[in-house]
């Protein structure tokens, strides 16, 4: 731990959490599965911990035309919720591919979306890292770069976002509901994340003290659509993604009319591949089409020496995901 004294309290309600969450040194804690690791590594030094686990934001259900998942819903509950399994299996697949059973029993949806990068330099105290302290340098750029990003990185930071769930949710056009000092707002999940640019230390567009209260998935995102999640990792039982792909397509009269290709583990945020999506629209769902689209999707990805293999691996994973969807196996 940081060794700095800290206060701990349970938030009484959302208003209380939001009122106190913006103070310097304040941090929300949900399952704590990521925050505690960062704290131990000296990469988070909260002085006021506001526990939001008990806020009752763990409901999962239908709200109008949307699936609503509370921010403190535990990953294991999400993965086995009948509505999720039935109507949005992509979410269940991505969650079941995340972490281990024990961690999923503790980890929450909000915490999962806001977990920080696994970059080993960021996770080790004392190492140069712009995400920890802008201007201190980036250890990964000329060091261990197997896990580094293919897309969206800047010269300041090449880290990737580790969430599996976020990849699936972006493919489903999800939004998040956020409460803050200025009230409640909704933001598209893909707009929640920001690229490193000049401020690699800031991962999201959330203002200080803003609390994610729930995630909303448009029902239409899944209805009549085919989707699957494919994850490539170094250990089968549990491990972060080396890379992953969430794909959603809708086929009408034999041609693809809607496509989302989103990949994980290769960018600072879940990364959409619009060039690949465009080449699918209007085409037949066939392997040849998928191969062309996948090749276009990964084109121009500028690899570092240690992660160039991920370009080809990603291309293959895209083809695999799309053929799996199209053939149903």
């Amino acid at each position: 731990m940081s060794g700095v004294a800290f206060a701990y309290s349970r938030a009484a309600d959302v208003a209380d959490a939001v009122a106190r969450g913006g103070a310097p040194g304040a941090a929300f804690v949900a399952g704590g599965t990521d925050l505690l690791q960062l704290w131990k590594a000296g990469r988070a030094t909260p002085t006021e911990l506001i526990d939001v686990y008990g806020l009752g934001l763990d409901g999962i259900g239908v709200d109008g035309d949307e699936l609503s998942i509370g921010a403190t819903a535990r990953l294991s509950d999400v993965a086995r919720h009948p509505f999720v399994v039935d109507q949005h299996p992509l979410i269940a697949e991505a969650v079941l591919a995340s972490a281990s059973g024990q961690i999923r029993n503790m980890a929450t949806v909000g915490g999962n979306l806001l977990q920080r990068t696994r970059c080993p330099y960021f996770r080790t105290a004392g190492m140069a890292c712009n995400k920890h302290r802008p201007g201190s340098g980036c250890g990964a750029l000329d060091g261990e770069d197997r896990h580094a990003a293919l897309f969206g990185a800047g010269s300041s930071c090449v880290a990737t976002h580790p969430s599996d769930l976020a990849v699936a949710l972006v493919a489903l056009d999800a939004t998040v509901e956020v409460s803050g000092a200025r009230g409640v707002r909704r933001v598209g999940l893909s707009e929640l994340y920001r690229l490193p640019g000049e401020r690699p230390d800031v991962d999201t567009t959330l203002a200080a003290g803003e609390l994610i209260t729930r995630v909303l998935v448009p029902r239409a995102a899944s209805i009549g659509r085919l989707a699957t999640y494919v994850k490539v990792r170094d250990r089968a039982s549990f491990e972060f993604a080396l890379l992953s792909v969430a794909a959603v397509i809708r086929i009408d009269a034999g041609t693809i009319v809607h496509a989302r290709l989103v990949c994980g583990g290769v960018a600072p945020a879940p990364w959409r591949l619009p060039a690949g999506e465009a080449l699918l629209i209007g085409q037949k769902p066939e392997r040849g089409v998928f191969t062309v689209a996948a090749a276009a999707a990964v084109e121009g990805a500028p690899p570092l020496p240690g992660n160039s293999f991920k370009v080809e691996l990603l291309r293959r994973a895209l083809v695999r995901t799309l053929t799996t969807i199209a053939t149903g196996s």
Partner: peptide
Amino acid sequence: MMGRPGGAGRTADAHH
């Protein structure tokens, strides 16, 4: 699934 390459989740199907 757990008994296949890639593990939990949907990665490898039998024909892969």
